[in-house]
Simulated scan of single mutants.
Amino acid sequence: MLAEKTSSAPSSPRSLIHNRHRMSLPNSRAYIYPYFTSREEAGVMLAKRIKHYARYPDTVVLSIKPTATALAYEIAKELELPLDLFLIRSFQYNGMTVGAITDKSDQPLLKEQIIRGCDIPKDVIDELIAKEYIELETLKKECCPLNLTLPCSENATLILCTDGIQSGQNVRNTVGILKNILGYRGKIVLVAGIIGSDAQKIFMRETDDTIAVLCPQIVGTVASWYKESFELANEEISQILSQAKNLSKNIS
């Protein structure tokens, strides 16, 4: 399924806001008007687009970005599916992403071609990995993921949720970790409030389904598409996941 674009009529206020936003260049001083009032609103919109996954067997909703947990919660609640936070940390060398780690495995995902091409010493990579594991453990302690067992059958489905995608490096690393490190064999569905059109084309090839509310040519910053400018604190993320745990009990 192609990423969906807004179907608002040309004269609607939301359509006008969308058009003005799309016309704003990343470095422009012009005011950029948000499209979504909140991550929750984007989550409700996305849930309507994937309602065929409601109560789908062997299916888990994963927030792949801590600040998108509120969005993912709305999807899980509407579809009556379990929710968890999937923690990863990507790391860079001289501005290039060279790998990523997850708390679910001691094995890192490494961009071997880039590492060899740039002749990056092993001790440098090891130092980057060690630093990211410290950050990852802090996130894990403060956000309190539920550590749900991921479905492992070929008939399983993971719905990966994020509020928006620019370059898509973190999302690409998440997919790579799931397939190449954790050995996940099921279906991967990527959903986002907004995906840049170039990134959308890439993920249509790398996932089984990629769905977005908006897919403009120019994204700018993801945060600029949301009226709520603040990000969730780790304590708030933990509270949302606790609510999701109670929700799963009621569903079962």
Rank of each mutant, 00 (worst) to 15 (best):
P121Y: 12
I188C: 08
P216R: 06
L16N: 14
L81F: 10
I64H: 00
K245G: 04
G183C: 06
P121V: 05
C152M: 12
F230P: 06
L81C: 04
E41R: 01
I165E: 07
V171M: 12
T210H: 04
A42R: 02
A156L: 07
T67E: 10
N27R: 12
D198T: 14
R185D: 02
I120F: 04
A47R: 05
F230H: 15
A54G: 04
E231G: 05
S153Q: 11
D198P: 10
Q243A: 01
L139V: 03
P121W: 05
I202Y: 15
E135L: 12
R172H: 12
P108A: 05
Q92Y: 14
A130W: 05
D208F: 09
L247V: 01
R29Y: 04
E154W: 11
S105L: 02
A233M: 11
T67N: 12
S90P: 12
E41I: 03
Q200S: 15
V44R: 00
R49F: 03
P10A: 13
D84E: 05
I64V: 02
P13C: 07
A72R: 00
K245S: 05
C118H: 14
S15T: 04
P145I: 13
C161K: 08
S12I: 09
A244Q: 03
P216T: 06
K122C: 13
A42I: 01
L62I: 04
E127R: 13
E236I: 01
T138G: 06
A30K: 13
L158N: 09
V171I: 10
T67A: 10
I218Y: 11
P34K: 03
F203D: 04
D208E: 13
L139Y: 12
I211W: 02
A156V: 07
A3R: 15
C143P: 10
G193P: 01
R185P: 05
S229R: 14
S11P: 03
A199Y: 07
Q169W: 14
C118L: 14
L182P: 05
W225Y: 09
D58I: 00
I114W: 09
L178G: 07
I165S: 07
